[in-house]
């Protein structure tokens, strides 16, 4: 199972809807989107209710996005499944990411 990325752009807002697995093999794709699409974005959201699995590589991608947004606006991670939330909790990312259940 791979991952699908859907982009919803608004006025200064951008939402990535992620489904599937965000792992070593799919993270570079999301990293590419983050590297190229964040210019001028004030509110960035990751809608991850469809995300089944999040690996450390995926965390690293979200961290990279958070670091970019720290300088230009806000970032939210929306509706993670319990299993994914557990990963955020274990890694302590709940402290640095704005996660809305």
């Amino acid at each position: 199972m791979a991952m699908t990325i859907e982009k919803k752009e608004g006025n200064g807002t951008l939402t990535f809807v992620l489904k599937g697995r965000l792992d070593t093999s799919t993270a570079p794709e999301l990293q590419h989107e983050i590297d190229t699409c964040l210019n001028g974005v004030k509110e960035l959201s990751f809608e991850i209710s469809g995300l089944e699995y999040l690996s450390s590589a995926g965390l690293r991608t979200l961290l990279s996005a958070q670091k970019t947004m720290n300088g230009q606006g806000t970032m939210k991670v929306l509706h993670p499944k319990d299993s994914v939330m557990e990963i955020f909790e274990i890694t302590g990312f709940t402290d640095i990411l704005t996660i809305i259940k």
């Binding site: 965390l59 890694t91 302590g92 990312f93 402290d95 640095i96």
Partner: peptide, 10 residues
């Protein structure tokens, strides 16, 4: 017990 943030993040 609750863990801290991963290393090298912040």
């Amino acid at each position: 017990p609750k863990a801290g943030l991963a290393l090298a993040v912040m």
